[in-house]
Design a protein around this nucleic acid. Structure first.
Length: 936
RNA sequence: GGGCCUAUAGCUCAGUAGGUUAGAGCGCACCCCUGAUAAGGGUGAGGUCUCUGGUUCGAAUCCAGAUAGGCCCA
C-alpha cells in the first residue's frame, strides 16, 4: 500500500471533443463544407418531397454591393422559417432570387465608363450591366451562404434570365388585353442638354439664382364676397420659373387658410392673409386696404384668365400650398411639377407640354414658340409687364435640381408614359377584395396595405432607360397608333425566351414581326419599336409567375412572403397588382413583415451617425451564428436594434447555450441510448422532472416557431439552459454522474435524460443556430443520431405523458424550499462558516403540512441542496434556535446552517462521519468505498 | 404635413379578458468554488411601466393629446 490511490481516476468526469471556445469564424466554413459535400439542400428536398409543401417565395434583393445588416435580418428570418417548416413535416424548397435590372446598375456602369451612354451602343451598355449584375449576384450569393442560409443557390432565379424576361411580356400582354394598360402624360426630371430622363438618384441639388415674380391672374368669375366692388380683381401668384407659365392651367389655394381681398390703387388683389405684409413690403406698396376676408375653400372652381394663353385657369384647392412665402396662390402646370400633376389628376385638368426634348418651346406655347426656355423667362416677364400683369419682380436663391452628369439645371417635363389603371377596370377593387383573403402578420399590416392600395395613383410602368425589359409595343408608322395584339405578345415572348430581351434592341422591327403583319387599325405595314423599358417593380412584381409557375418544385400562390415593412409600397403591392390583374387572385397566402434596423437609441442606421454594423465584419470576428442568434433574440415585428453592446450580450447568451451543450456531451461519452437507456418508469424522480421541463420547453418553443415569434424561442431556450439545467439539474446531477459506478442504473437514468435534452436542444436550435446545432450533432456518435445532419431530422414530438402535474407541483415546492436554504447558506458563507455548500449541514425546522411534505422526501434533500447532511425537526419556526434563518417567503420554515460533521471524502467531496471507516480506503466515505471496491 | 407603427429595469424580452408589493434571463456588485475552469454556483442592488390629461372603486394594461423614434408618402 503506502502509496495513496488517485481516486480522481475512479470518477466519471466529463470528456468531450466539443470545445468551449467556439471559434465560429473558423468552425463555420468547415460546417459549410460539410453541408456542401452532402448537399444538404438537395438531400432535404429529396427526403421531404412527399410531404405537404410550404413555399416561401424569396423577394429578390438588388444585385448591387455587398450585403448589409438589413439583408441579414431578412434572409436569416426566411431561413429560420424554411428550416423549421421542413423539420416540421413540410416539403419546403427555397429558391433565392436577385433583382438584376434597373437604374442604379445602369448608373454605376455609366459612371465607370466615364462617357455618356449615347457614345456607346445600347447593346454594349446592356452587356456591361449584365456582367455587373452577375458579379454581384455571385458575391451576395456567397455572403448569404456564409450566413448559413440554405437554399437552391446553384439555381437561383434572376430577373435577367431569358425565361423570366419573357414572363414580363406575357403578363404585360394579359394586362393589356384586359384594358388595364394605357398611355398618358406624366412629368419627370429631364435634362435638355443630355436629352434624357433622370431618376431621382441622378439628381444633385445645388443653389441657383432664379427670377422671382408676382403675377396678376385676372379673376373672371364673379365671387360673392366681392360682388359689391367694381374694381378689377386679380389672384396674386408667385413663381420662380416664369417659363412654366405657358403651361399653366390652374391656381391652387389652401382650403383652410384665410385669404383677403386687398385694394391697391384701384385694383383688388387676392392673396393669403398671413402673407399680405410680406408681399407688399417686398413690392414696395405702402397704401393698401383690406376689404374682405374669406377661406381659400370658398374660391374653389372659380375661373381666372390664363395670362399667356387663350384658355382659362381654374382655381383649385391643395394642402401643399405654402403660407410662408409667395402669396398663397400657387401657379399650377401639371406638365412641370409633381405636385401640380397630382392636383391635375384630382381635378381632371389637361397637361399641356409646350417644351420639346431640347428645351425649346413648341407651337403649343403660343407666341413664345421656338424660343429656348432659358431665354423665354425675360420675354415672358417683359410681356406680362407690358400688359400690366406683373406686380413685382426680384430674384431669389434656392436649392434647385441639377443633372449629375452635365451639372446643369434640369426641368420637370411631362412625357408620354405607360400606366396601369387602377380604376378603368376594377383592379383596385379586386385587389382590395383579395387582400381580405390573405393572412397579414402582424395584423396592422393588412390595414397598411389596404390604405395604400386605396390611395395609390395609377402605376407608371415605363422608364426611359436601357437596362431592363422593353415594353413590347409597336407603333404603326402610318397611323402612329400603338400596336399590341395577342400575336405580337406571343412573338415577342417566344423571342425573349430564346434570345433574351437583348434581341429587342439588336433586331430591326422587320426581323421581329412576320413579313405579312399589318396594323389592325389602318393596315399599315411599317412599325417602330417602343423605346421605353418596364419599371423594375413590374419585373420583380411578376416573380410569382416567373418563378413559382415555372419551377416544378414550387407552388403558386406562395405560402409566405417575408419582407421589410417598406415593401407594403413595393413588392407586396407590385406582386399583388400583377397577380390580381392577370389572375384575379393574390400571389401569396400569408405575408410576414419585419421592421427596420435601428441603433440602441432607436435611430436609423446611417454612415453619418456612425452607427452602422457590418455583418461581414461580425461574421469574420464572431461568426454567423452570433448574427443569427441576434436576429432570433429580437422582436422583429417592430424595429430591430443593434449595437456593439447588444451583440456582446448575444455572444454571452450564445456561450451559455454552447456550454450547456458541452456539459451534456461531456457526460454522454460512455452512453449509448440503444444499449443503456432507462425506461421512463424506472427513471429517478428528478430525471422525470427534467424530462417534464424539457417537454414543456418543446411545447412552448414549437408554438412560438409556429407563430413566427422567434424571440420567444430564444428566450425560452436560454432560460431553460440557464435556470433549469445549469443552475439546478446539471449542478445537482454532478454527484451522481461523477461518483456512481459508470454503468449504474442511477447514472444511466441521468444519461438517458441528458441524451434526450441534448438531441432535442440541437434540433430546436437548428433553425436558428444552424452551425452550432450541426457542430453539436456531429459530436454524437454516428450510430446514435437519426440522420447525418440535424437539419434532416423531424421536429421532436411533445410527449404529453411526461406532464405529470403532481410531480411538477411537488418540485416547484421543493424549489421554494431550496431557495430558502440557499439564502441561509449564503449568510453562513458571509460569516466564513462554510465555503463550498458541501461543507454545510442544514437543519430544517418546519411544522404541520410542510414538515410532512419534507419528511416524505428527506432522502432527496441533501442532493438537491447540494449539502452533506439534512436534519429535519418538527417544530414551529419560533421554536428554532435564535441564529436560525427564518424564511420570509415560507413563513413556516426556519433553517440552521452549520459545518457538516465528519470528514471530507477525498473522492466525492461530501462530508461524512463514515470517512475513515474503511481500512483500505481511509479517505473515502462508505458510499465511495462501495463504488471503488466494485471497480477493482 | 398625411398614413401606419413603436416607447416596460443598463441590454433583450414577458406581462393572460384593467385588480394584491410590475416578472425573466443577461449585464452589474459582492461572495463561493476550482472535478463544465477564458467555465460553474450563490446572494443582492436596479424600473412606477416616455410625458400630460381623462375613463374607472382601481390602469403598464382603455381613451385623448404631447414628446421621441421608425417605415412609407407628400
Amino acid at each position: 500500500m503506502g502509496k495513496s490511490i488517485d481516486y480522481k481516476k475512479t470518477l466519471n468526469l466529463p470528456r468531450t471533443g466539443f470545445p468551449m471556445r467556439a471559434d465560429l469564424a473558423r468552425q463555420e466554413p468547415e460546417i459549410l463544407k460539410f453541408w456542401d459535400e452532402i448537399d444538404v439542400y438537395k438531400l432535404n428536398c429529396e427526403e421531404t418531397k412527399d410531404r405537404p409543401p410550404f413555399v416561401l417565395h424569396d423577394g429578390p434583393p438588388y444585385a448591387n454591393g455587398d450585403i448589409h445588416l438589413g439583408h441579414t435580418l431578412n434572409k436569416v428570418l426566411k431561413d429560420i422559417v424554411v428550416k423549421y417548416k421542413s423539420m416540421r413535416g413540410h416539403f419546403s424548397p427555397y429558391v433565392p432570387g436577385w433583382d438584376c435590372h434597373g437604374q442604379p446598375i445602369e448608373h454605376n456602369v455609366e459612371k465607370s465608363l466615364g462617357v455618356h451612354k449615347s457614345e456607346i451602343g445600347q447593346t454594349e451598355l446592356r452587356e456591361l450591366c449584365r456582367n455587373y449584375a452577375l458579379k454581384y449576384v455571385k458575391r451576395q450569393s456567397e455572403q448569404f451562404r456564409r450566413l448559413g442560409v440554405r437554399g437552391d443557390f446553384k439555381r437561383p432565379y434572376l430577373t435577367l434570365d431569358p425565361e423570366y424576361e419573357a414572363t414580363n411580356i406575357e403578363i404585360f400582354g394579359k394586362l393589356y388585353e384586359r384594358g388595364l394598360i394605357y398611355r398618358g402624360r406624366k412629368p419627370i426630371h429631364w435634362c435638355y442638354r443630355c436629352e434624357t430622363a433622370l431618376a431621382e438618384a441622378e439628381i444633385e441639388y445645388a443653389d441657383e439664382t432664379s427670377p422671382s415674380i408676382y403675377v396678376k391672374f385676372p379673376l373672371k368669375s364673379s365671387f360673392a364676397p366681392l360682388r359689391e366692388y367694381p374694381q378689377p380683381k386679380y389672384l396674386l401668384i408667385w413663381t420662380t420659373t416664369p417659363w412654366t407659365l405657358p403651361a399653366n392651367v390652374a391656381v391652387a389655394v389652401h382650403p383652410e387658410a384665410d385669404y383677403v381681398a386687398v385694394e391697391v390703387d384701384g385694383e383688388i388683389y387676392i392673396l393669403a392673409r398671413v402673407l399680405v405684409e410680406q408681399v407688399f413690403g417686398e413690392a414696395g406698396v405702402a397704401n393698401y386696404r383690406t376689404l374682405e376676408t374669406f377661406k381659400g375653400g370658398e374660391l374653389e372652381k372659380l375661373v381666372c384668365e390664363q395670362p399667356l394663353q387663350d384658355w382659362n385657369s381654374l382655381i383649385v384647392l391643395a394642402d401643399f400650398v405654402a403660407l410662408d412665402q409667395g402669396a398663397g396662390c400657387v401657379h399650377i402646370a401639371p406638365g412641370h411639377g409633381q405636385e401640380d400633376y397630382m392636383v391635375g389628376l384630382e381635378y381632371d385638368l389637361p397637361t399641356p407640354m409646350p417644351v420639346d426634348d431640347k428645351g425649346f418651346f413648341t407651337k403649343e406655347a403660343g407666341k413664345f414658340g421656338g424660343k429656348h426656355i432659358t431665354e423665354a423667362n425675360e420675354s415672358i416677364i417683359q410681356d406680362l409687364s407690358e400688359r400690366n400683369l406683373l406686380l413685382y419682380r426680384t430674384s431669389t436663391v434656392h436649392s434647385y435640381p441639377h443633372c449629375w452628369r452635365c451639372k446643369k439645371p434640369v426641368i420637370f417635363r411631362a412625357t408620354e408614359q405607360w400606366f396601369i389603371s387602377m380604376d378603368e377596370d376594377t383592379l383596385r377593387r379586386d385587389a382590395l377584395k383579395v387582400i381580405g383573403k390573405v393572412s397579414w402578420i402582424p395584423a396592422w399590416s393588412r390595414n397598411r396595405i389596404t390604405s395604400m392600395v386605396e390611395e395609390r395613383p395609377d402605376w407608371c410602368i415605363s422608364r426611359q432607360r436601357a437596362w431592363g425589359v422593353p415594353i413590347p409595343v409597336f407603333y404603326c408608322q402610318v397611323c402612329k397608333r400603338p400596336v399590341v395584339t395577342p400575336d405580337t405578345i406571343k412573338i415577342v415572348c417566344e423571342l425573349f425566351k430564346k434570345e433574351g430581351a437583348d434581341s429587342w434592341f439588336k433586331k430591326p422591327t422587320g426581323d421581329i414581326l412576320p413579313a405579312d403583319f399589318t396594323c389592325p387599325d389602318c393596315g399599315g405595314k411599317r412599325f417602330e419599336k417602343e423605346k421605353d423599358i418596364l419599371d423594375v417593380w413590374f419585373e420583380s412584381g411578376i416573380s410569382h409567375f416567373a418563378v413559382l409557375r415555372t419551377r416544378s418544385e414550387l407552388t403558386w400562390p406562395a405560402d409566405l412572403y417575408v419582407e421589410g415593412s417598406d415593401q407594403h409600397r413595393g413588392w407586396f403591392q407590385s406582386s399583388l397588382l400583377t397577380s390580381v390583374g392577370a389572375e384575379g387572385k393574390a400571389p401569396y397566402k400569408a405575408v410576414l413583415t419585419h421592421g427596420f434596423l435601428v441603433d440602441q437609441e432607436g435611430r436609423k442606421m446611417s454612415k453619418s451617425l456612425g452607427n452602422v454594423v457590418d455583418p461581414l465584419e461580425v461574421m469574420k470576428e464572431s461568426g454567423a451564428d452570433i448574427l443569427r442568434l441576434w436576429v432570433a433574440s429580437s422582436d422583429y415585428s417592430v424595429d430591430v436594434a443593434v449595437s456593439p453592446e447588444i451583440l456582446k450580450r448575444v455572444s454571452e447568451a450564445y456561450r451559455r447555450i454552447r456550454n450547456t451543450a458541452r456539459f451534456l456531451l461531456g457526460n454522454l461519452y460512455d452512453f449509448d441510448p440503444g444499449e443503456h437507456s432507462v425506461a421512463y418508469d424506472d427513471l429517478e424522480e428528478i430525471d422525470k422532472w427534467a424530462l417534464l421541463k424539457l417537454h414543456r420547453l418543446l411545447a412552448r418553443v414549437t408554438e412560438a416557431y409556429e407563430n413566427y415569434r422567434f424571440h420567444l424561442v430564444f428566450h425560452s431556450i436560454h432560460n431553460f439552459c440557464v435556470t433549469d439545467m445549469s443552475a439546478f439539474y446539471l449542478d445537482v446531477l454532478k454527484d451522481r454522474l461523477y461518483t456512481t459506478a459508470p454503468d449504474s442504473k442511477k447514472r444511466r437514468s441521468a444519461q438517458t435524460v441528458l441524451f434526450e435534452v441534448l438531441t432535442n436542444l440541437a434540433k430546436i436550435l437548428s433553425p436558428i443556430l444552424a452551425f452550432t446545432a450541426e457542430e453539436i450533432w456531429r459530436q454524437i456518435p454516428e450510430g446514435q443520431r437519426e440522420k447525418m445532419s440535424v437539419q434532416l431530422c423531424f421536429w421532436p414530438k411533445v410527449v404529453k405523458e411526461y406532464f405529470d402535474e403532481a410531480l411538477e407541483k411537488e418540485w416547484d415546492r421543493l424549489h421554494e424550499v431550496r431557495d430558502e436554504v440557499l439564502k441561509a447558506i449564503e449568510f453562513a458563507r458571509k460569516e466564513k462558516l462554510v465555503g463550498n455548500s458541501l461543507e454545510a449541514a442544514v437543519t430544517l425546522y418546519a411544522s404541520n403540512e410542510l414538515y410532512h411534505f419534507l419528511k416524505a422526501r428527506k432522502g432527496l434533500l441533501p442532493t438537491i441542496f447540494i449539502v452533506s447532511q439534512v436534519e429535519l425537526v418538527e417544530a414551529a419556526p419560533d421554536a428554532a434556535p435564535d441564529d436560525a434563518f427564518r424564511s420570509l417567503e415560507l413563513p413556516g420554515l426556519a433553517v440552521l446552517v452549520h459545518r457538516a460533521p465528519g470528514r471530507k471524502c477525498e473522492r466525492c467531496w461530501n462530508y461524512s462521519e463514515t470517512v475513515g471507516g474503511d481500512r483500505e480506503h481511509k479517505t473515502l466515505c462508505a458510499r465511495c468505498v462501495k463504488v471503488v471496491r466494485a471497480l477493482v
